[in-house]
Computed example of a mutant assay.
Amino acid sequence: MKKIIVTGNVGRDPESRYDASGAMFVTFSLAVNTGSKANQKTDWLEISCNGKTAELVQTYVRKGKKLLIEGTPAASAYINKEGNAVATLRVYANNVEFLSNERGDDTGMDNNYDSAPSEPAGFNAPGVQEKSPGFNAPGPSLKSDDIPF
């Protein structure tokens, strides 16, 4: 089993796309900083999600927001238009948690959304699966209609 949990800032606004069956999925970049302040390095990850999570990300996530992403990593390599070899790490998000409203805002938001593994068709995935969206918070179970936004 492969699993990755990362926190970082959204590098570009989410882009909606559709797979062969017409199901929507969303992709965006996430900047993840590692190392000390003096030797800080930024790794860029491509994040992909589908289903209800994709709808929420498309609506509420913008460049600069701080997120926690939990999902399945997949590495790939290709030759870009300029003829250079490029390696990428894509994370198929199972869980997206909104940590702040904007970069530098540490007040946090306790919004936590789950979706099924989001490996959309067209990315060598067998198909798109979706389970009921969840709202992970202590207390009674909430339905998506109960979420205030």
Rank of each mutant, 00 (worst) to 15 (best):
P73K: 11
G127P: 03
E119Y: 08
P120L: 06
F123G: 01
I69K: 02
I69W: 07
S100V: 05
V128F: 04
Y92W: 04
N124Q: 05
N124P: 00
N112P: 00
K81M: 06
A75E: 10
N111K: 15
S118T: 11
G64M: 00
F98W: 13
A85P: 02
G122D: 06
A87I: 05
V91K: 10
Q129I: 12
A125P: 01
V128A: 14
N80Y: 05
Q129T: 14
V128I: 15
L67P: 03
N111Y: 15
N94T: 09
L68G: 03
Q129P: 05
D110H: 13
N101L: 05
A74E: 03
S115W: 04
R90L: 03
A77C: 09
A74I: 06
I79A: 08
A87C: 14
K63N: 00
G104I: 06
E130A: 14
L99E: 03
D114H: 12
P73D: 08
Y92P: 02
G64S: 05
Q129L: 12
V96C: 08
S115H: 13
R103W: 05
P126G: 13
V91Y: 07
E70K: 13
A93H: 04
A125F: 02
T88A: 05
T72W: 08
A74P: 00
N80C: 04
K81E: 01
K65F: 01
G71H: 07
N111V: 14
R103E: 03
K66C: 11
T107W: 13
V91M: 10
L89N: 11
N84M: 05
N112F: 09
N80V: 02
E70N: 12
V86P: 01
G104A: 02
I79S: 12
A75V: 06
P120K: 12
K66I: 09
N101T: 11
L67V: 08
A74K: 07
V96I: 07
P117G: 07
E70Y: 05
N80P: 00
E70L: 09
G71R: 10
D106A: 13
E130I: 06
R90A: 01
N80R: 03
S76C: 01
G104K: 11
E130Q: 15
T107I: 14
T72D: 02
N124E: 08
I79C: 12
D110S: 10
A77G: 14
L89Y: 03
E70C: 04
A125T: 09
N84Q: 14
A116G: 09
N101G: 15
N95P: 00
G64V: 00
F98M: 13
Y78V: 03
K66N: 12
N84R: 10
A87Y: 15
P126A: 12
A85D: 10
N101E: 09
